[in-house]
Design a protein around this nucleic acid. Sequence first.
DNA 1: GCCGTTTTCGGCCCGACTGTTTTCAGTCG
Length: 569
Amino acid sequence: MTNQELADIFDHIADILDIQGENPFKVRAYKKAAQTLENLTTQITSVEALEKLGKLPGIGEAITKKIKEHLETGKLNYYEELKKSEYAPLVEFLKIPGVGPKHAKLIYDKLKVKTIPGLEKTAKQGKLRNLFGLGEKTEENILKGVSQVRKFKERFPLAYIYPRAQAMVEELKKNKDVKEITLAGSLKRMKETIADVDILVSSNKPSSIASSFVKLPWVVNILSKGKTKSSIQTKDGFQSDLRIVKPDQFGAAKHYFTGSKAHNIRIRSLGVQKGLKINEYGVFKGKKWIAGKTEEEVFKSIGLPFIPPEIREDWGEIEAAMDGKLPHLVELKDLKGDLHVHTDWTDGQNSIEQMAQSAIERGYEYLAICDHSPTIGITNGLDEKRLPQQIEEIKKLNKKFKNFKLLTGIEVDVRSNGDLDLPNDLLKTLDVVVASVHTKFTQPKEEMTKRIIKAIENPYVDIIAHPTGRLIGKREPYEVDMDKILDAAFSNKKIMELNAYPERLDLNDINCRKAKGKGVKVAISTDSHKDSHLDWIFFGIATARRGWLEPKDVINTLSLEKLMKFLKK
DNA sequence: GCCGTTTTCGGCCCGACTGTTTTCAGTCG
């Protein structure tokens, strides 16, 4: 039972209760508990962990008891009973935009419809419009919503959304009535997957902005258009929401629309304690506006320093801010090099020299060439004959550079028994050895954990690449005991990779934070297979920041000299 | 259901847009 599975149960409970018409604060309590569990950095696998559990935000006596019951018996009676409720199937309806718990219940109570296909049929027959509170328009919207649920995926990878969102911002900037413009929401917080694109604009002519927005070239459907708020769907499959405020309100609005929701609730509650009201228009004392031009002003009003967007998740950032212990998050400019790239010696597209040139253009001091080893046959992996040849080539090239060095390396495969597919005699001649799992992902958790720990214990291995093997939206992480892996990494002074390849982002934010907590250093590397891929470091940095990493936690912020010392080379 | 430098009871963040019920409930973020 993972935290995520427990979180899903409480989330489901909240939805069923909501449809049943339970006390909305009780519903919110379950939602809050689900969120806390989802964001936890340690797995709740033991009953002992429960001692600390009750102290977590939103988890009190009743929910602790429920978690305990589930851990001990493998199920939760309350949940099992709730699932038998005639309203339980209606949770599906909540996925339809515009349908909430009240309408779901109403539709079922009056028409006994409880499936999405059934709902579609009923709507097409024109039966919904006769229900009290619903009309023709709502019926139409529900039909649209049903087809949308089919057509639109739930979330998109950050790297898919980000460039498209930037393009929308650039297009909107052409409107001269835009004073300030920014991305907001989960995109501003750089979550690894994004449901929709939030854009915030300050302007004295809101209607002009709204008109530009709904006329953007990517728009396929206008969902709503108002003076301060509009929503569209784009041809790329995602929704985008625009908010427009006055220039003096921009900071308060930016804070508010960046979220997360949990963070905002905390901030607003702190405001209430100080007799302040905080909303998207500013900070108010009574009816008097006292702050809100910048985000800094909003934080300052409740006595806090600026909290970076990436960590606004109510994962402890507010407590850290109160104690003056906010991390100084790592930035792109802190990085001195990339420790994992491929070339045309294996499955990369550019030569070693071209990769070096691109690294130099990005201001790096070093670049580690870590091509594949023999096991990955299709990549033309380097064997005992070709790897020494590549090392020679790199040595020759290094004579050409000033203030820059190519590091010799390999991405060596970890076999299913934990052995590496190149001999130690060869590995010890390299500057950087990155070890990774590319085969037999379905091993049981214990075997996989042992396998990786064995690689960590090899004296010539420096870095474990993409430690969970997940591909966002395509492949779940393999089963592995991350706590044990990190403990082994710490005691062997080994580095964990944060692979910045857009579909990997592995370690993810939560595991980065866990690594930091255990004192394990992280390498943010792109795994580039092409010179332009070096820019993907952007998403690696974003994930590192979400994981609270500081320059001191990241190994490739070290100068070449200090790096080589750390690697003992 | 959670929580407490106002409280172990009585609160719980706040506002915009839509559609429909002509004064507001439902949904969303």
